[in-house]
């Protein structure tokens, strides 16, 4: 028995198991983020000299470009999350409720396949499809819709397509698992009692799927907000995405203080949205995360 083997060995074992967890959480998560916060609150006053100040945050609010890009990134991420939800919900519903057995399993597997492939590859696909010399502009010309090939890359709508595409999996999976656990007889009972499709959806299906919807939206919003690859490749050289600003400050300009402040603002926005999502749906963080 475990309990019989003495408290000393037990304590030793506890510390042995605790050590890797603490090294991970302290060394790679807590301390680096604390350091990032400190970094964002200081200013270079001379060669090798630093003082604590709010200068980095002042720059953010004083410079319209940074502020605009921040808001733009947040708004596009919200829109992308909403569109992803609207597309993924009927699909998850079809897999969970309208199909059975093999068809359902096959459809689910087919939906997952593209996400086994790297985001780089998927983005390359969209670039070949959408650029001026690409496939879709060519198709549009041969169909007579446009006279000359149209550049379809480097537009906000293109970024949205790319972001929604990348996010679908993270919405379909939690939606599916929450819809699958919904008892069919509840839906039937609601219809028997005279409900129509809309009221059933609003009063039975959506409340039951709320944890899945929350989990999906939180994860998708966070991933789109922090996306770099899709936004910068489909949006072009000036796609004005906030993670690009962070990259520019950190890597190109080597202005770590400013980059740290930007990073912290993004983290704050992302955490705020997670918190709002949890509050709105009355979910607990640990429940939601174990669903995804």
């Amino acid at each position: 028995m475990v309990e019989a083997s003495g408290t000393l060995t037990r304590r030793l074992l506890l510390w042995l198991l605790l050590a890797p967890a603490l090294v991970w959480l302290l060394g790679l998560i807590l301390l680096p983020h604390l350091d990032l916060a400190l970094l964002s609150f200081r200013e270079r006053t001379g060669p090798g000299e630093y003082a604590y100040s709010l200068a980095q945050y002042r720059t953010f609010f004083a410079e319209p470009l940074y502020w605009d890009v921040f808001v733009r990134t947040a708004v596009i991420s919200l829109i992308a999350t909403a569109i992803t939800l609207l597309i993924a919900f009927p699909i998850a519903w079809t897999i969970a409720k309208l199909t059975r057995g093999r068809v359902s399993a096959l459809l689910f597997a087919v939906c997952l396949i593209p996400f086994w492939v790297s985001e780089t590859v998927r983005t390359l696909g969209w670039m070949i499809l959408l650029r001026e010399t690409g496939v879709l502009p060519g198709v549009l010309v041969s169909l007579g819709v446009t006279d000359a090939p149209v550049e379809m890359l480097y537009r906000d709508a293109t970024i949205l397509v790319g972001l929604v595409y990348t996010s679908l999996l993270f919405m379909v999976v939690p939606l599916y698992s929450s819809l699958e656990s919904l008892d069919d007889s509840l839906i039937e009972a609601a219809y028997d009692l005279g409900g129509n499709g809309w009221t059933v959806l609003r009063t039975i299906v959506i409340p039951h799927a709320a944890p899945g919807i929350t989990a999906g939206c939180i994860v998708v919003f966070m991933l789109t907000l922090g996306n770099y690859l899709t936004a910068s490749l489909l949006g072009g050289k000036n796609s004005l995405w906030f993670t690009e600003q962070i990259y520019t400050q950190f890597i190109t300009r080597f202005n770590w203080e400013q980059g740290a402040a930007f990073g912290f603002l993004l983290l704050l926005l992302s955490s705020l949205m997670v918190w709002i999502g949890l509050r709105l749906s009355g979910q607990k963080f640990s429940d939601v995360m174990s669903r995804t």
Binding site: L28, I29, P32, H33, L36, L225, I246, G263, S270, M289
Partner: peptide, 26 residues
């Protein structure tokens, strides 16, 4: 601790990157 273990999943990857970059160099 169990809550903390979930936190890395809601931190954007770019920020994990820069925070570890800054901390490691410190």
């Amino acid at each position: 601790l169990s809550l903390l273990m979930l936190v890395p999943l809601v931190i954007p990857g770019v920020i994990l990157g820069i925070s570890i970059l800054a901390f490691a160099s410190r």
